[in-house]
Design a protein around this nucleic acid. Sequence first.
DNA 1: GTTTCCTGATCCAATCCTATACCAATTAAC
DNA 2: GTTAATTGGTATAGGATTGGATCAGGAAAC
Lengths: 230, 230
Amino acid sequence: MAQLVAETIAGSLRERIERGDWGDGTRLPPERELAEAYGVARNTIRRALNLLGESTQITRVVGRGTFVEPTARGSLTDLSDVLARIAGSSPADMMEIRQLLEPTAAAFAATNASAAELLRVAEAHRLAEAATDLADFEHWDAEFHHRVFACSRNELLREIHNILRLVRNQVPWLEMKRRAFSEDRRRHYCQEHQALIDALGRRDPEGARSAMLAHLRSVESNLFERGPRD
Amino acid sequence: MAQLVAETIAGSLRERIERGDWGDGTRLPPERELAEAYGVARNTIRRALNLLGESTQITRVVGRGTFVEPTARGSLTDLSDVLARIAGSSPADMMEIRQLLEPTAAAFAATNASAAELLRVAEAHRLAEAATDLADFEHWDAEFHHRVFACSRNELLREIHNILRLVRNQVPWLEMKRRAFSEDRRRHYCQEHQALIDALGRRDPEGARSAMLAHLRSVESNLFERGPRD
DNA sequence: GTTTCCTGATCCAATCCTATACCAATTAAC
DNA sequence: GTTAATTGGTATAGGATTGGATCAGGAAAC
């Protein structure tokens, strides 16, 4: 994944900081020294440090040097706290958020997607339809939803969905989905997906929005009501 | 079935991508290299890549290379990658998401908040009003918005906002907000905050929703239009 | 004859790395 | 206090790599 020399070096430096080679508040070697150590030009080191500064907290002071911020680990743990809480959030909250985000993503997609992207959405739908077991269906169903986000042309929206998707791949969720699954329901979902694809093909934002909303409501009621075989 | 050479090559490349020869986000060999490897002219490789681009997500950047889009394969991307992409997302995307999430959070808050929570929202508003410098105002403004999320009674929604808040605390955002700031605008924001608090106090979800939306629209136009002193 | 497809070649534009020089702020030596 | 060395910040130039675009020519299909 590291195509750029600067990216590689940034990764190496980050690792060394996190490993504790340079502790909180200590000074990193001067740029000129790092350049020689890594065998690259100083420009490249500066670029690596700029990249590093985007994610890790470092402070650079003219005449003094580059320092590891004491808060660097703090904000990281902040973030991991956030993620832990996200992972532990309730299915009801999740479905509420999905009903908030996904219809809008579908509406955006109807307006913004290229024909090629719509083909990719349709492809995921087709594979979900053709799936022979639950795991396969789950995979292509998730992929279908994600591809809608992918063509919404809002990168942030897409990445938020990535996070939600990670949560829904946790064990309790898989269990829950397994209990709510039936062949009937699968067919029903596929029909709803088809309706969404039709709306996207018509470039109809409001149609896509309501198709997605209807789909999520049926997912929700299946998830939270009694199983199909009581 | 006399396939074009370019089509055959496109198919071969597609297969290799899906098989994982080149993983998410990695760079494909340069066109000149592929041309030699397949024993064809570079034009033909370019044609194949154009065909490939119609069905698979690849990105081509002059001077850098051709890349497999992170979404091109089904694999779930690493969480740290997701966060890096979130941190790098555009302010326009951010404002779009805020206008999607925050009005709904406000509506939830109007229904769900306890009286004590509403007091905490009002407190943040009061401190933002009383702030004497930009940093202080920024802090309480952000806190105001976050406390609205905190009483929306949807933990997931609140944590998503936490992530967005972390992004908006990055350097480029701070710069942008500084440029868009003026005392006039601060007073205007505070009036809008007051309108929101009034709606929350009336337990009026739709009023809260529209008050928040109006506020975010004015934030957006201030952020993206010319500075206050042109 | 015309069209389509591939080849070969050339030039352009963007990006990355190198190399170098100079500036500005800080620190240490005197 | 003054000066010199150190260090990050900035700018410029050049070479190498890479995708973008175009043109001329040959071969095959119609």
